[in-house]
Design a protein around this nucleic acid. Structure first.
Length: 920
RNA sequence: GGUCGCGUAGCUCAGCUGGUUAGAGCGCUGCUUUCACACAGCAGAGGUCCACGGUUCGAAUCCGUGCGCGACCA
């Protein structure tokens, strides 16, 4: 017997979790071995997940916790399934985000990045990251993440930076990267361009200003133009109408007068103008609107720039005479007000109405983004998108939940070129050098190595000052973390392509789509066969948890209070495929009760069980044990739980390279898995089986040995099933199982297998019958408040077979219900509680003095009524010729069987009701 | 505006290819501090499956419309 302090009543997760984690690490349980991968001649199929790299300066929030928990469940499951499991962890240098953090620090010191200069600023950021970065990886360990930390990667490491250069140069050489003069999203605070995805639309109530323009030839003719950004009118070069629009046919080719500046601009015809929107006339500002830019280019219009990089008005480029002197240098939103005043004064502001529209904000600092004409690097997406789109359409990659497939397809088919240059300092610098001597286009050289002079003429070169979008490097993540571009890298050979990519739907385009595109472009193969998009953590009002709203939950708080297992179980069990998880940040006790209760319960089950099994030798489980009904029953339930778990988790990978249609949505139902495992260990193993075998466990003899053997076996299997969800407490208990071999881990134990499917032993059904009898007896006790100490005597009318079973199990029945049973041929008269069970078994409990006849009659009557209602419906169905002719035979048989069963029960109930309640 | 999703017990949600007396957790009610666990056990209450219409022998499940939410893309 274990000493009491070795098996405390309360599970001490606070000391257990870190200790267990340390043991796993010391044993190298999470370290993958290339030689064992079947792709390199080993005997294990690889199962690989690359972790979405959190920002290097990030600290763990629930979203990360959820993401990590999902991946860890899959990793641990695959590892136990005998796969060579590799979970690659790492962080992202997060260009704009990290630069902003350091800039804030500088601001606190009264400095700007310009004060330091580029080199020093980058150095300082590097030091900052080295010192404080990667905290989140440590936090992931405390939630149990079984990642291979020996392979921890970083997007800005020398190795991964090399991959970035290689990718850039290859795309450049193929002509897929080009320098473009375009209107892009510009953040006037970060002073950088942003991709379409980084400029996030936010619904905002603004104003729609209706401005009247007069015709140059005929001042009496007025047309109205609506805009939400009147300050951009200084850069207007035309107004456009739809060529089909009958209202304005006569104006096309004529000029209107641009108010304030009082210069003539042409009326042009372009499909872009939507006749149904507003007045059907749209102003064209090519330098400050992406659509207008396209219109301008189609019509050969100039592109005056009237807003500078800081968002202030000015005659920035090709705009001489376009900004009134008193507006030069004025900030854009103040300028907007002043322009509106000028319009009012000139009588040109027709009206102003409130308007709900989307305003794009910088995803890093939330400043309103300004569309701005500038030179940027772009990736031509069309040819990259084609194989990535096909891969999803043909089932080489599946996206779960399925509804995201459509979103993915529409994005990929309407894909626009990707602006990859950022005017910041923290990131991979664009590997392009400009030669001061060579002629264009030869003066632009992309290079894998730094250039000191021009390789063509030996002349002076200077490197492009832009850095690459962070997502360019993270798009290479599955490749670069495994050693690409070295095609002979063992990790690349052993582990690429990977298996599942687990992330949030928000970054489907930012990241997932680009990884798929790069996977095909650089390796000719998809980086993973499954994209699993999980939900978002929200508060009770449905708001996304975020730092800025202050409604987040710190997973470390949860770990400290209830343990990592409680956190994981709650998240996994509470999250349907792709569904959001709702938690109350103000009530952690309630939010995490599910997981906390479960972890405690599991511990207690283990404690009771192991204490009772004791230290003596346990007969090893196998054929030949003289199993009794309870044993057969729990083994049957175990098989069911294993099968259901396997079905919920699904196949590890497609059989070939493509998912079959019927497997396209199979598996990854982690909540179903959690529920199945919970039901088995709690409701079936603990509530029923343990209660049923307590006496056997305490009574020395052969049967005790059988019970111990089955119990240990079943609990061992249960711990294996549960391990992916609650790794710590399961590992702690597993180590205490009799016969545990020091140095072996549940984390690498084999996944349970159900016994071959066979006709269930009749003893399983017999056990269920006797549990039904016990349940009925308990119901009677509870209904009539029979004191726990008082024995009751019941009469039963039942088949000979059931009599035999109940006689054999009378000790168990008595232990569970404090009842003794007498068999009778017909129900005795007198005040009694009456129940009819499956198969027409009648249970009569005479309770002279205790039973309230009126109450019993009311109960019988309501049961009878309910049953009659069901029977009417059932009879209706069976007498419907349509049903009998067209429904499948199996369904009809089942309905007929039900009819027989229910009719018997109704007849018996009615008889009892009349005997007891008939008032004469 | 386009595309998509959601509306099932007081709350949060399962219910996959139509056939269940519609489920779980939390909460609630009663009994029990019985020697694993009160973060528990036993027994319960609680649902016109948003509304209307349709397909079908049969609909929470499929289709349409409406109402109410939400997401993504414009």
């Amino acid at each position: 017997m274990s000493a009491p302090d070795e098996f405390p009543a309360q599970y001490d997760f606070a000391t257990n979790e870190p200790a267990i984690y340390a043991r796993w690490q010391a044993a190298g349980v999470f370290t993958a071995n290339t030689a064992r991968s079947s792709r390199l001649g080993g005997d294990r199929a690889p199962y690989v997940i690359v972790m979405p790299p959190p920002n290097v300066t990030a600290i763990l929030h629930v979203g990360h916790g959820l993401n990590g928990a999902v991946q860890d469940v899959l990793m641990r499951w695959a590892r136990m399934k005998g796969q060579e499991a590799l979970w690659v962890p790492g962080t992202d240098h997060a260009g704009i985000a990290t630069q902003n953090v350091v800039e804030k620090q500088l601001a606190a010191e009264g400095k700007t990045r310009e004060d330091l200069g580029r080199e020093q600023f980058v150095e300082r950021t590097r030091a900052f990251v080295a010192e404080t970065g990667g905290v989140i990886l440590q936090q992931l360990k405390s939630i149990g993440a079984s990642a291979d930390w020996t392979r921890t990667a970083y997007t800005f490491s020398p190795e991964l930076s090399g991959a970035v250069r290689e990718a850039f140069v290859r795309l450049f050489e193929k002509g897929l990267i080009y320098r473009g003069h375009r209107v892009i999203h510009w953040c006037p605070r970060c002073l950088t361009s942003l991709s379409d995805e980084e400029a996030e639309p936010t619904e905002t109530t603004g104003a729609l200003y209706h401005i009247s323009y007069v015709l140059q030839d005929d001042p009496s003719r007025i047309i109205t133009v609506a805009t939400t950004r009147p300050e951009t009118m200084l850069g207007d070069v035309a107004v456009a109408v739809n060529p089909e629009d009958e209202r304005y046919q006569d104006l096309i080719g004529k000029n209107v007068i641009l108010p304030i500046l009082n210069i003539p601009i042409p009326v042009i015809a372009d499909d872009y103008a939507d006749p149904a929107f507003g007045t059907g006339v749209v102003k064209i500002t090519p330098a400050h609107d992406a659509n207008d830019f396209d219109v301008g280019r189609r019509h050969g219009l100039p592109t005056p720039v009237v807003i500078d990089e800081h968002g202030n008005l000015g005659e920035v480029m090709d705009a001489v005479g376009r900004v009134p002197a008193h507006l030069i240098g004025v900030e854009r939103f103040r300028a907007r007000k002043q322009i509106v005043k000028l319009l009012e004064a000139a009588g040109r502001l027709e009206k102003r109405e409130t308007h709900l529209h989307n305003v794009r904000h910088c995803y890093r600092c939330d400043t309103v983004v300004e569309p701005r004409l500038s030179d940027q690097w772009f990736v031509r997406m069309q040819s990259l998108a084609t194989p990535a789109l096909d891969a999803v359409r043909t089932g080489h990659v599946r996206i779960l939940p399925e509804r995201w497939v459509g979103v993915y397809e529409s994005w990929m088919t309407n894909i626009r070129d990707w602006n990859i240059s950022r005017q910041i300092w923290w990131g991979h610098r664009v590997p392009v050098w400009y030669c001061s001597s060579c002629d264009a286009p030869n003066n632009v050289i992309a290079s894998r190595t730094d250039l000191a002079s021009c390789p063509q003429c030996g002349g002076d070169v200077r490197q492009d000052t832009d850095v690459l979008d962070t997502w360019f490097s993270s798009g290479l993540w599955p490749l670069s973390t495994l050693g690409w571009p070295d095609e002979n890298a063992p990790d690349l050979k052993a582990f690429y392509p990977t298996d599942v990519l687990v992330t949030a739907p928000e970054i489907l385009f930012f990241w997932v789509a680009r990884m798929i595109m790069f996977g095909f472009e650089f390796k000719g193969e998809t980086p993973f066969h499954t994209v699993y998009l999980h939900g978002t953590a929200r508060d009770t009002q449905g708001r996304k948890m975020s730092k800025s709203l202050g409604n987040g939950i710190d997973p470390m708080d949860v770990v400290n209070r209830y343990g990592a297992d409680a956190l994981r179980y709650t998240l996994i069990a509470g999250m349907g495929l792709g569904a959001d998880v709702f938690l109350d940040p103000a009530d952690l006790d309630k939010s995490f009760a599910t997981g906390r209760n479960f972890a405690t319960k599991l511990w207690n089950i283990g404690r009771f069980l192991l204490k009772n099994v004791g230290d003596g030798e346990v007969t090893s489980f196998g054929p030949g044990l003289a199993l009794n009904r309870a044993d057969e029953w729990i083994l049957d339930k175990l098989d069911t739980a294993i099968r259901e778990s396997d079905r919920a988790l699904g196949p590890l990978r497609p059989e070939g390279k493509q998912w079959r249609n019927d497997e396209l949505t199979a598996g990854l139902r982690l909540n179903d898995f959690a529920e199945t495992a919970r039901r088995f260990v709690w409701n079936e193993l603990a509530d029923v089986y343990l209660e049923a075998i307590k006496t056997r466990l305490l009574t020395p003899g052969d049967d005790q040995q059988v019970a111990r053997s089955v119990l240990v076996h079943v609990f061992d299997q249960a711990l294996r099933l549960l391990h992916p969800i609650v790794p710590f407490v399961s590992e702690a208990l597993w180590a205490r199982l009799p016969g545990h071999v020091e140095g072996t881990f549940l984390a690498t134990a084999s996944w349970p297998a159900a016994r071959a499917e066979a006709a269930a032993s009749p003893r399983v059904g017999e056990f269920e019958m006797l549990m039904e009898v016990a349940g009925a007896l308990r119901t009677v006790r509870s209904k009539y408040n029979v004191p726990p100490s008082q024995e009751i005597a019941a009469s039963i009318v039942t088949s000979a077979g059931n009599r035999g079973v109940l006689t054999e199990e009378s000790v168990l029945i008595n232990r569970l219900t404090k009842a003794t049973i007498a068999f009778v041929d017909t129900a005795p008269a007198g005040d009694a509680s009456n129940m009819v069970l499956s198969g027409g078994t009648e249970l009569i409990v005479p309770l002279e003095g205790l039973i309230d006849v009126r109450k019993e009659c009311a109960r019988l009557e309501s049961e009878l009524k309910n049953l009659e209602k069901q029977l009417t419906a059932l009879e209706g169905r069976l007498s419907n010729p349509g049903f009998v002719e067209r429904a499948p035979a199996a369904i009809i048989d089942a309905e007929r069987a039900k009819l027989g069963e229910w009719s018997t029960r109704r007849d018996l109930l009615r008889a009892r009701f009349e005997a007891l309640c008939a008032t004469g």
